[in-house]
Structure formats: structure tokens, C-alpha cells
Design a binder for these strands. Structure first.
Lengths: 355, 355
DNA sequence: ATGAAAGCGCTAACAG
DNA sequence: CTGTTAGCGCTTTCAT
């Protein structure tokens, strides 16, 4: 009953050709003009009688005709598609399930629509990282927004050397040959940690994987804030883990089992922080009385957690716009510079009021 | 410093052509073979000496050569891109900010990657609904997954008549000419409402826009469950609203201001339910003691809300897989049938224990 | 096992 | 103002 396929070809006829898709020549024939006239009409070429133009456009619309993008491109027309690419880990599939990542994609999508572009989302297995620009290489997209700098700095630099147009969401690094847009992670780490220290915390655990550039910067902020107070962070308080709720729960367990003393957690993402919240609760530790918790991102989850999560806010709206605008500017031949967006502390109920 | 543009052309030379992109002819020249040999090597044509094939592939890889997808397509090669399209409302921009919608996109993305496809995300202003298949019409995508049946049933039927390949996420409707994948909304509405009634609720407000097909079915479930108990729902308890947290808060205010008596809320999405939760709290109503609340979707937010939200779970993983598989099956010439996925009630703390 | 050549659907000179 | 024509970069017969 439900048909989504084109109707079968009129197979009875003798010279039955494939029911090939409508094309310019068909429109031309029906309108009694040449193909070039149709081409010109559809692209609103100026020197063409308004009447003809009108008539042809009308006809094309009524027949639902759209020009073949491949053929147009071959003739040099620029496509309106931007690739959003990221390294995909088939095992964990974290990206497409991570609320922060999805929200970022959403904001990029908004920004692209505003500018009249569509978004080709490409997940690339890390083993074939060079394929991250595959959509550009095959000319399906005019440029790439790379999400997930992770620890691919070296390989991203190689891409830049190749002269491929792209912009990266991530941390600004010393010797980078590419353009990044990212939050001020160092500041975020400092703000979170200072807030915890001011509220009386002395042994702050760090949850997150410092081999990832952005997390490394949050980690640095964590160190810097403590050193500014003359404190030397206990290395046992650094708990490397992927961005998965399960990991945070496990580390809370371990911390407690191992008898490591801690009175606060600074988690590198809200997902980790919220998971820590519930793990702490199940161990009978009260938040914020016994253990204070600060997250990172400020996704909607944070405000709804119980207790509501104190966190470091990233401005995704600005991020999406900046990534898109910088890429388009670069494609336009302009020189572009890395951009660091401010982070702000959002104080809620998972931390105590500073004395 | 940061360069994302290709290097300037070697402008000094006399016959300085554009630094055009590497193409098959270049590989052919460098490998001392004909273009056709390169083409065959790259597509692993069988009758070709393994040695030549190897050598050419190696060369192409080392030069980062990728064939132009437009040209390939023109020659009849099938592209590996599926469009995911949805009606876009520029004012509210709800879609790209809605956690449920984003999660659904994520699951579709996972399923597509698994099958080796990439995902072209296209937002289309509702005024030009026909453009929903633009990516297919221009042959940038082989088919379309339409998200957001909303109240476009008529127009979607027209698409089907056109013979365009697509699959829709949404409600199964009587006279549909297209294939849908959707949750069992009627069941979900019934489960939620029965649970509330069993827990003693008698005046259950309905939050959501029943002009949208899926919501209409949840609404029907709400009615059916009450009628099964011989109750006639008070029409004033139906509060139509868009999928925005702000709207839910406003309706809670209004319900209370207008003095409408209610002891439960069944919201058509978790976002609405969670917003209702906090609005009720700010009016001094206790959940679940004074007012019970049930949501829909079971996004991560639901479990974290306080009190944790009782909700109707949709199986997004199954949804993403089904949408992709059905579209691919249809493209493969198979007949496909609408699919309704089961919904389940997840009982948490925003409802009372049934007596 | 490899090469020559035709042509996919379109755009943009160049003519008229 | 409109039509004719030459390719865009590739795949694929058909020859060799």
C-alpha cells in the first residue's frame, strides 16, 4: 500500500527508455526554447525577457524540476553545503549521544540555515582521520567544521598544510596552523576551582581526560587556582575518564573505596557532574554539605539536577555562529584568527556559599 | 598566521593556470597510464593487474586525491548521502534546540554511519514545504528522512504522489500514502493517564498542541483512559501549547489564575513536564502530593528532574534504525510498511504509588 | 590488461 | 534577446 518508489516505467512501449528524471532539455522542449534559455531563466540571468523567464520558471516549478547539483558543480557553481565532521568511535558512540555535542551541532545548524547553507554531518572513524575532509575532497561540501580536536593536533596541522578549508571547535594550542573557536577553558577551570576553594573545599577531585586538549586546559585552571592559594593538588585526585556517565559513577566508587579523601568534585562536563551527584548520593554523601560539585557546559540537564548543578557555562550560540562565520570568511579569502569565547560561572545549589 | 586557504597560485609563470584541484588526469600522467586505468584502479575493477591497481591507489592516496562526486554522479554512480529534512520555523527555532529532536537526529546519524552513509541535515521554511526534498531533487541525496510530520499530512501525501523516496517520523494516519515510523502515541497517552488515574488523579490537565498528529494521538489516549473509567474530561483542562518550556510555565500560571481545579498534568513532552514541575513548585504546589506530573519521551532530563519525572519512553534507538532501514529498503525497490514502535511507562517520583 | 572516445546534465562563451 | 557549441571530470563501452 504505502508507496515511496517512483511508479514502474511504462514498460509496454517499444523504445521504452528508463523513466529518467526530468531535465533541462525536457523543460526546453515543453517551453519551445533552447536549453540555454532555460538555464538562464532558472538562474535569473538579466538579459532575458521577463516574460520568458517567468513562463519558464513557472513551468519548471509546476513540474517540480530542480537542476542536477552534480552537473552544476561540474560547471563551476558553488554548492551551499558545509560539512560538520568529527572523529567517530564506533564502540562508545559517545558523540551522537552526548547532549553537549548535539546542542553544539544544533547551534551550528541554526547558524548555517541563517546563512543559507545546509549541513552535511560526517562521522569518521579515527583510524582514517584524513577522511575527515572527505566531503570537501569530493566536492560535496565547500568546507569543513571539525568538531573534536581531541588529541589530533598533529594530524589537524597536517590538514592545514594541505590547504584544505576548515575551522576547528577546540582549544587554542601553541603551534597550531589552523583556526580554532573554543571556550576559555583555562578561565573556566579557574573559576570553578576558585569558587570551590572560596566555599571551603580543600581536596578537589578532577574528573575528565586531560589528554584531550580542552580538558587539559580545564585541568590547568584547576591547578592554577590551587597554586594561587599556595596549595599543591594531590595527583591522586586527578581521575582521568571518558565523557560517559558510567565512568563518573565508577570513579566516585573508586575514590571512596580507595579511601582517598575529597571534599569536592570539578567535572569536565555536566554529564559527568550529574552522574557524580547521584553516585555520591548513593554513597550517603550529601551535596553540597559533604562534597561540593561543579560541572562544565551548562546544558539544560544542569539546572534540573538535584541539587541544581553549579557549572561553567559555554556560549554555544556564539560558538555556532563563530564557527560558521569564520569558515565562510576563510572561503571568502579573508585571513581568520582563532577565537576564544568567554566562560562564566553559574552558581546553583551543588556548591556552598563562599564564606 | 593561521592559514586555512590554499596557497596562492604560482603566479610567476607565464602560462599560470589556476591551481585547479588535482584530478584523475594528473594521477594518470604521473602513473604513466591512461585515465581509464586510473578510474578502474580506484574503483577496484577486477580485470586490472593487481600491481597496477596497487601502484595507482598508493599514488592517489599519497596525493590525497579523491574523485569529484559531482562528476561521478553525473556518470551514474550512487551517492552515499541521505537527507534528514524538517520544517524549520525561523522565529522559534525550536527544532535545533529541542533535546528530543536532537537525540533523534543523533540516533539516525548512528544508524546511517553504521550503514556507511552520511547525513545531510536540511531545515526548510514551512512556506516552501515542497523544498523538503530539495536535496533529493538536486541529486545531492538519494532519499529523505522527514522529521516533523506536524500538520503537513496533506502536503506529505503530495510528495508521495510525486514518487519521491522518503520516510517520515510521525503518526500513522488513516489515508496516508507514505511510510511512517513512530511511537505508539495512543498507547503512551493511555498508559500515562491510566497510571495517574490509578494513583488517584481525577482532574488531569493535558499540555500540548493537539493539532499536531502525534500529539493528537497522545491526547486521544488521555481521553480514552478517562472514558474507560466513565469519566468525561473537562475541556478546560486541555491546554494547547508549543513545545517550549516557557509555554508550559505560562499555562500553569494561567490554570491557577483562572481557578481551574487540577490534580495532575500529562505533558506531551518531557521539556514541557519539567517546566511544569518548576512552575508548580513556585506556586507552592507539591509534586506529587498536590499535583502529579507525567511527561513524554524519557530524555535524560527526565531522570534528573526533581522530583524525577514519571514519563512515557520512546525508543529512539529503534526509531533511528527503522527510519534508515526502511528508507534504504524502499530505495532497494522493496515495498515498505509503516512501523509503530512500542512506548513504555517509566515510573519515577512525580506520580504517587497507585493505591 | 589497457587505451580511446563518447557522453552524463549543465553553464557560459560566442554568435547571431 | 536567444540559440549553438564546447567542455566541466568522470565512467564505461568498445577496441586493441
Amino acid at each position: 500500500m504505502t508507496r515511496t518508489k517512483p511508479p514502474a516505467p511504462p514498460a509496454g512501449e517499444p523504445g521504452a527508455r528508463k523513466p529518467s528524471r526530468l531535465q533541462m532539455a525536457d523543460i526546453a522542449r515543453l517551453a519551445n526554447v533552447s536549453i540555454s534559455t532555460v538555464s538562464r531563466a532558472l538562474s535569473n540571468h538579466p538579459r532575458l525577457s521577463e516574460q520568458t523567464r517567468e513562463r519558464i520558471n513557472e513551468l519548471a516549478r509546476s513540474l517540480n524540476y530542480s537542476a542536477d547539483a552534480g552537473a552544476q558543480m561540474l560547471r563551476g557553481k558553488r554548492l551551499n553545503t558545509v560539512a560538520v565532521a568529527f572523529p567517530y568511535h564506533p564502540q562508545q558512540r559517545q558523540h551522537f549521544r552526548d547532549p553537549f555535542f548535539l546542542a553544539l551541532i544544533g547551534r551550528i545548524g541554526d547558524a548555517l540555515i541563517d546563512r543559507g547553507y545546509s549541513m552535511l554531518v560526517v562521522g569518521v572513524e579515527e583510524a582514517q582521520f584524513e577522511r575527515i575532509t572527505a566531503a570537501y575532497d569530493t566536492r560535496q561540501a565547500i568546507g569543513t567544521i571539525l568538531l573534536g580536536q581531541e588529541n589530533y593536533h598533529r594530524r589537524i596541522n597536517e590538514l592545514a598544510v594541505r590547504g584544505v578549508p576548515f575551522v576547528v571547535w577546540g582549544a587554542r594550542l601553541r603551534d597550531q596552523l589552523y583556526c580554532t573557536v573554543g571556550s576559555d577553558n583555562l578561565l573556566g577551570g579557574r573559576l570553578a576551582t576558585e569558587h570551590l576553594l572560596a566555599a571551603g573545599a580543600r581536596r578537589i577531585a578532577f574528573f575528565g581526560d586531560p589528554t584531550l586538549s580542552e580538558i587539559a586546559q580545564r585541568h590547568e585552571g584547576w591547578i592554577a587556582a590551587q597554586q594561587a592559594r599556595g596549595l599543591t593538588p594531590d595527583p591522586r585526585l586527578v581521575r582521568p575518564m571518558p565523557f560517559e556517565a558510567e565512568a563518573a559513577r565508577r570513579e566516585v566508587d573508586r575514590l571512596i573505596e580507595d579511601g582517598v579523601d575529597f571534599d569536592a568534585v570539578f567535572a569536565a562536563s555536566d554529564v559527568l557532574a550529574v552522574a557524580a551527584l547521584s553516585a555520591l548520593k548513593s554513597h550517603g554523601r550529601r551535596v553540597p554539605e559533604d562534597v561540593q560539585v561543579v560541572g562544565f557546559d551548562d546544558i539544560p540537564l544542569a539546572a534540573q539536577a538535584s541539587p541544581a548543578l553549579t557549572t561553567v557555562r559555554q556560549d554555544l550560540e556564539a560558538a555556532g555562529r563563530a564557527l560558521v562565520d569564520l569558515l565562510l570568511a576563510a572561503l571568502d579569502g579573508q585571513a581568520i584568527e582563532p577565537l576564544i569565547l568567554p566562560t562564566t560561572l553559574v552558581v546553583r545549589d551543588s556548591t556552598r556559599t563562599p564564606a
